[in-house]
Design a protein around this nucleic acid. Structure first.
Lengths: 260, 260
DNA sequence: CGCCACCTTGAAAACATTCAATCAAAGTGG
DNA sequence: CCACTTTGATTGAATGTTTTCAAGGTGGCG
């Protein structure tokens, strides 16, 4: 379990101690399988648990009464969901599995126990939530202020980077179990236009998308053409006061050189 | 200071004790004035402090290299900002005052002291951050899947409700120091189209917008026409375990009847 | 008075959607 | 193993929304 997606993502943020690694492993041990197409959380209902995605893809999306919907965020292995939903009496969005998924659920009280015993792990999970917020803000920029071509390119590169962190992508390719209708609902476009934009991007030689797999053929060129800026992903990780052990938020610079 | 916007917003979430009220007042006492048009936080730079908006309007927005930009969120009195930005080495967006603004800033260590001394206040502030996330997600739905007319109506109603909570709106009207260019950048439209959409909504008799003031003339009719659903604002507040004192997250039902 | 910020208008062009088919691949049940 | 159904991708044509460009107009303020 040392190299679970969750542990890999956490170690982007803090240097995990053995105890923290063990606590994460204990969480991950509670895996529950959810079949493709199943709602893990339904919009309008109370979500009693937060959960960690151990394997598979899910999406957070909001429905309008007339059937339109917007995909807010793609959940991939190592992602947490429902942490903020715990604060509310009912969920304002649904979470749906788009492949078979394995999750580990935690109730409020289990979660607060975990945070009390392992405060730095709690901070790292909170970092994770902050990053997700930044990603959703970027989706807003995408949909509000970019062309269809730019939106698509930005999303594909975002997913490449996020999947690389949890070892679900090599340096240029990843499995992509997302059909064009879902993609359209994520990008704020019609599925027909997604199709045509996808074709244009393929013809331009930037990507190959076939059979649920994406290959970024020319990342440098694509990044230039769509003005990609990855700053919002905060891949550089967390500030020193958070990363290193023996150093609390109020400490000034006494972080140990515990990296690696 | 008992009826400061911040205290009003907090009491939407928890029943404030005297100590908590005093702690909030102590924070608010640190007011700093920021002139209209000033960047409080600049995209790409490190934000050392989180802050509370005591008075005035500001906006969180992200810039693209070519000058396009997207407004993520309007900050009004009682709103916190920069809580998640503390987790990152550099800010991925700017915060700019659009009126003269009074803020109260807190460093990481001041904030963590506050949270340690007043954990329930910390939870309430966290609730606030969760609500803001839900609001930004709604902006994404707005821009991704609604027409110009719907986007505009939804934003105006959102602001009406948010301002009512902090006593900056009566039952139908509020001051609105936002020009059409900014509105366009929030709604993902051109300012020309915002202008025409605004005119249409006025002609339809739903709103009056003159001289930096919005009056919702027919809220019921507007809500119906634009399919407004306020669930994402979570106006019902927080679950009982969070609201009442003497009750921690792990407690089962021992909440005191302190509501009044 | 003249400038500046902001709002308003018209016309043409660009972008994206909708509607309506068609096609291919992947299950399903007998 | 074969018809049948379902799902997802693709295409063309017509339509519609929104943008862009280019000008004016208005009101406040030094």
């Amino acid at each position: 379990m040392l190299n679970s997606p969750a542990a890999q993502k956490m170690s982007q943020v803090i240097d995990l101690t053995n105890e923290e690694t063990a606590a994460l492993a204990a969480v991950a041990a509670r895996g529950v399988r959810v079949a493709r197409g199943t709602d893990i959380v339904a919009q309008g209902e109370k979500d009693e648990c937060a959960f960690l995605v151990r394997d598979g893809w899910a999406l957070r999306h909001r429905h309008l009464p007339d059937g339109r919907r917007q995909v807010l965020h793609f959940l991939v292995p190592g992602d947490w969901a429902g942490l903020t939903a715990l604060m509310f009496p009912e969920s304002d969005h649904s979470v749906t599995a788009i492949t078979d998924v394995v999750i580990a659920s935690l109730t409020v009280s289990e979660l607060s126990t975990l945070f009390l015993r392992h405060p730095r792990l709690g901070m790292a999970i909170y970092w994770t939530a902050a990053q997700e917020e930044a990603v959703i803000a970027e989706h807003l920029v995408n949909v509000g202020r970019r062309t269809a071509y730019e939106r698509l390119g930005n999303l594909l590169l975002e997913l490449l980077f996020r999947l690389q962190v949890v070892n679900r992508a090599d340096h240029r390719a990843f499995d992509f179990p997302v059909n064009q209708v879902v993609l359209a609902d994520a990008l704020g476009l019609s599925h027909v236009h997604v199709n045509r934009t996808l074709q244009r991007m393929r013809k331009d030689g930037f990507v190959s998308i076939t059979d649920h797999r994406v290959v970024i053929l020319d990342q440098v060129g694509l990044e230039r053409v769509i003005d990609f800026e990855g700053a919002y992903l905060h891949m550089a990780g967390s500030p020193a006061w958070l990363r290193h052990r023996q150093s609390g938020p109020a400490a000034n610079g006494a972080a140990s050189a515990a990296k690696s």
